[in-house]
Amino acid sequence: MTDYWAITGISSSNIKGVEGVGNKGAMALLQEHASLQAMFDIANSSDKRLLKVQQQQQEAILSKQLVSLKKDIQLGFNLKDLRYPKT
């Protein structure tokens, strides 16, 4: 899902993605190449959508970082402490 969002972007979060590749194009590329990294590794393609992704590689990588969830953040407390006590 993060590769898809990295390509299409998320307008409500102001994440641009790859300009010129829409939802259908992103789905087709991911079905063919399986991942964003695999798209970067392809050489000499005539697919215009793939070329756009490769030309905007840095933007796609940044977009992927922005849409990825961070799981290693230290909160300084336990989430169980925030639960509402049962009565």
Rank of each mutant, 00 (worst) to 15 (best):
Q58D: 12
G9N: 11
Q57E: 10
H33G: 05
V21E: 03
D72S: 13
L62P: 00
Q56V: 00
V18A: 01
L30A: 07
K80A: 14
T8W: 06
G20D: 05
S11G: 05
I61C: 02
S45C: 07
M39P: 12
A28H: 11
I7F: 02
L75C: 03
G9Y: 11
L62E: 14
Y84S: 07
V67I: 13
K48F: 04
Y4L: 09
D81V: 01
D72Q: 11
L69F: 15
I42Q: 12
E32D: 08
V67F: 05
Q65D: 10
E19L: 00
Q57S: 09
A34Q: 15
Q65V: 09
A60T: 02
S35T: 15
P85F: 11
T8I: 15
L66D: 07
S63G: 10
L66P: 03
T2L: 05
S12F: 04
K80H: 10
E19I: 00
L36K: 09
D81P: 01
V53N: 02
M27Y: 12
Q56H: 02
L62G: 00
L62M: 08
S35Q: 06
A34M: 13
Q56E: 09
K80P: 00
K86H: 06
H33C: 07
K86D: 09
I15S: 04
K70N: 11
E32R: 10
R83E: 11
